[in-house]
Design a protein around this nucleic acid. Structure first.
Length: 271
DNA sequence: CGCCAGGCTTCTA
DNA sequence: TAGAAGCATGGC
């Protein structure tokens, strides 16, 4: 990987490739916006970025410090993982191979865990445009103002809100789930940092102690924010793909990278 | 208008 | 232990 600075921009390249637009809008994260053609605005851990893609294997950050690029955004985009090696493995399966040929390199994001957990609680039986809208409303109402937008509100902040406060979200039956998650995280009853260090089954079971968190939401939280790259969340699309393509079980070439394989299958199964 | 959405909890047999 | 009902809201 190479990092170069020039005229206030920071260029990261030679990390093995990314399709930025697909990575940001394939249903892992819900806060990115394309502010103008090819320019993507995002915020995580209270840090904002404007990102553009110069070519298949480089990203340009404008308005970010070099420290933020190295400490926040390179981990966020999973740029230190060897995706060419991972892709050569999972493309032994023909379904994934055709998806990779069409889409290029999807990256599994490493999001802020509380934001990820909360977002996927909201995702239950919902569609992506509306998930994004509810998350945006949550941030605009209860997150700290930043230069260009709003940070995701902390678990501590949300834990002190009431169902009435959260009625502005129009999130329906998910509101008490959001509150239970916030209270368990804020009180320390569960520690997302500790869950990241647990064995897979224990991590999943611990997340599922939150009301409104079943296996699928737990798996998404683990995959997209806690470093469990081999976790395979099964939603209704993936369940259909499994029945159609893998009735006798997942191919062994997915082992170690089931999360990424799942992401390609998710795109395929949504047509 | 009707169908569907990156599910979960609770009730039932 | 498995399957169905109920859940709140709005995108398309």
């Amino acid at each position: 990987m190479k990092i170069t600075e020039k005229s206030g921009e920071i260029l990261v390249s030679d990390f093995g490739g990314i399709n930025l637009r697909e990575t940001l809008f394939c249903g892992q994260a819900f806060r990115w916006k394309e502010t103008e053609d090819g320019v993507f605005y995002g915020i995580t851990r209270g840090r904002e970025a404007l990102v553009t893609q110069k070519n298949e294997d480089s990203l340009c950050f404008s308005g970010s410090t070099r420290e933020d690029v190295e400490q926040i955004w390179i981990p966020y985009f999973d740029l230190e993982r060897d995706y060419p090696a991972v892709l050569s493995k999972i493309t032994r399966d023909s379904v994934v191979a055709s998806a990779v040929n069409k889409t290029g390199t999807l990256r599994i994001l490493n999001q802020e865990p509380w934001e990820c957990l909360c977002s996927f609680i909201i995702s239950a039986c919902n569609n992506i445009p509306r998930i994004s809208k509810i998350v945006a409303t949550l941030c605009e109402n209860f997150g700290e103002k930043t230069a260009r937008g709003y940070a995701f509100p902390s678990a501590q902040t949300v834990a002190f809100l009431s169902e009435t406060d959260l009625s502005v979200l129009h999130a329906g039956y998910r509101v008490p789930y959001i509150l239970d998650a916030a209270q368990k995280v804020a009180s320390g009853e569960i520690s997302l940092a500790e869950i990241a260090e647990m064995p897979v089954e224990k991590a999943e079971k611990t997340l599922m102690t939150v009301n409104g968190v079943g296996k699928k939401v737990a798996d998404c939280t683990m995959l997209y924010s806690l470093g469990f790259f081999d976790t395979y969340p099964v939603d209704r699309h993936i369940a259909r793909a499994n029945a159609e393509f893998f009735p006798d079980g997942l191919p062994s070439c997915f082992d170690g990278a089931k999360g990424l394989a799942q992401q390609y299958l998710f795109i395929v199964s949504k047509r």
